[in-house]
């Protein structure tokens, strides 16, 4: 176990290993604390939510709003890493994160995460409206307290419910422009919400030993791999019509409908493939394939949504 974690769980006696008084962190370690890949998803989905408003917004304010939402999401990722540092040190996938690797002390990460949380919420409130800021604050609270501190350690449904935190950004993006919510962004929320379990469980199937070692009750650890495969297939089947719903309900056009139908069918097929292949190399490949394609699925759907939202605006401004 790393020096940082030793000091984290020590009893504070004189004999215990003391962390260095000089910070060992590079600038990139702080960046890693913000979970940059999650931030990319947040930036993109919040932008789509913002475009859904179909109302004019000053580009500077729009950029600053997306930045505030991204920093808020990064702050919640940082606080997640602070709270779960001990668990992260036990898992192969997360052992090299800045806190378990000893690059950043837990106290530094806590201060960094809290400062960014408060700063991003206040900044968003000042430049847009306090409804959006309150929603961002709630999202940070939900991810850090409800998911990280409670659900993750308590139930196999942790990422089902906790996935809501990752699904809120389109609604926050919309709210920055309008100060309210609508059905269209609720559908965008639902797409990410239903997408999260099959996406995450496909990875959890591969990393189930890691989770078992760390004592995290992920579905493959608690209910077994066959049940996880069954749940993935069910969620993929539900995801397909949910993914198509923005078109089916008339919010966006046929381009999105075609794309969401094709990619939804691919997701169902890959989930079924994973359900059939249960052992050895084929099972491993099926898990990774579903995990990888699920990322592409969400990206493509939101690109299609963005195109459908932007096209009328560009046409209205005589750019097309």
């Amino acid at each position: 176990m790393s020096l940082a974690i030793d000091s984290l769980i020590s009893d504070g006696s004189a004999e215990s290993v003391k962390p260095s008084l000089v910070s060992q962190a590079m600038a990139k370690d702080y960046y890693e604390l913000l979970k940059p890949r999650v931030m990319q998803l947040v930036i993109f989905t919040a932008l789509v939510g913002m475009m859904t408003a179909r109302e004019p917004i000053n580009p500077v304010i729009g950029f600053a709003s997306i930045l505030a939402i991204a920093i808020g999401a990064g702050a919640s990722g940082c606080l997640n890493m602070w709270y779960d540092a001990t668990i992260d040190s036990l898992m192969e996938r997360t052992a090299k994160r800045p806190i378990p690797s000893g690059a950043i002390a837990p106290g530094e990460a806590l201060a960094f995460g809290m400062t960014l949380s408060v700063g991003s919420v206040l900044f968003l409130g000042l430049i847009t409206n306090w409804y959006a800021a309150a929603f961002l604050a709630f999202t940070i609270f939900f991810y850090v307290v409800v998911y990280t501190m409670w659900l993750k350690h308590w139930t196999a449904q942790n990422i089902v419910i906790g996935g809501a935190a990752g699904a809120f950004p389109p609604m926050i993006g919309y709210m920055t422009v309008t100060g309210s919510m609508n059905i269209e962004t609720l559908l965008q929320f639902l797409i990410i919400f239903i997408w999260t379990p099959p996406h995450f469980w496909a990875l959890a199937l591969v990393k189930s030993k890691d989770y078992a070692r760390a004592g995290v009750p992920m579905l493959p650890v608690v209910a077994g791999e066959i049940e996880t495969r069954r749940q993935i297939l069910i969620y993929a089947c539900v995801l397909m019509p949910i993914g198509m719903s923005p078109s089916l309900l008339g919010y966006v056009g046929p381009v999105y409908l075609a794309i969401s139908t094709i990619f939804g069918a691919v997701m169902v097929w890959l989930a079924y493939d994973l359900f059939r292949k249960r052992e050895g190399e084929p099972a491993l490949k099926a898990s990774y394939r579903l995990f990888g394609v699920s990322i592409i699925y969400l990206f493509v759907l939101f690109v299609a949504l963005l195109v459908e939202e932007i096209t009328p605006i560009l046409a209205w401004r005589n750019f097309l």
């Binding site: 008084l21 000089v22 910070s23 060992q24 962190a25 590079m26 600038a27 702080y30």
Partner: peptide
């Protein structure tokens, strides 16, 4: 005053520049 190693100085410089 604490004497920083070249490695620690490089890390400090990286943090200062980013800040």
């Amino acid at each position: 005053l604490a004497k920083l190693t070249p490695e620690e100085l490089a890390r400090q410089k990286s943090r200062s520049r980013a800040l």
